[in-house]
Amino acid sequence: MIVLDKVNKFYGDYHALVDITERVEKNEVLVVCGPSGSGKSTLIRTLNRLEEIDSGRIEIDGRDIHAKGGDVNALRAGIGFVFQSFNLFPHLTVLENCTLAPVKLGRASKAEAREHAMQLLERVGLAHKVDAYPNALSGGQQQRVAIARALAMRPPIMLFDEPTSALDPEMVGEVLQVMRGLAGEGMTMVCVTHEMGFARDVADRIWFMAEGKILEKATPQEFFANPRHPRAQQFLADRRRD
């Protein structure tokens, strides 16, 4: 479903993504992990073109994401993206956050968008907060609204960029639970996360990244029981010590 072919990305002289060639299959849950600065956030942001790439090709469902003159808006509408810092729209209510894009992009009438948003908010456990403004919500609640907002576009793919890293520990669980639910329904997901418990339980595959390269690709069983690359061994050892 997602195909990366020799993707390279530079920040000045710094080689942020090095010749990445990979695939993600439909209905797959992929977890990308690695130390900070390893390029995992950059990688996931290139998938919906929040970051440009310098060479190579990224295809999603056969469509070239970085094509010159391509309709990037139409492509993005089919890719849900969840940010570390939630990025809810503070001037809109929870419900309006979820209906803005579907209505303005003509995907649904106001009434349809509203009904769909209510279902999604129900599903993330926030039906009672529809008329609240984001400032009145906890971090965990905001992130669940952000997931509902992304789902409101009915995307076949969801990308999560460290969705729990900005949360207090006691709120991590409620967000992961929503993500587990999505995975259980067969959503194609790419998750950059440090939550190794989530990776172990939910991921179909794990990519371990460092220095802009994917150093190891494995199933969670292989990765946690028997990491092959020394950097991955080090990374997991550090995690266990925490």
Binding site: N48, L50, N73, A74, R76, A77, G78, I79, F81, F83, S85, N87, L88, F89, P90, H91, L100, A101, K104, L105, A146, R149, A150, M153
Partner: peptide, 29 residues
Amino acid sequence: PKGQLESARSLGLGYGAALRHVVLPQTLR
């Protein structure tokens, strides 16, 4: 915050629509 424009764009809104519905209402306020 840059994330406001980014999240609006990530939903598929174009630059103009993102300015009109997300960036400018906050800026003007």
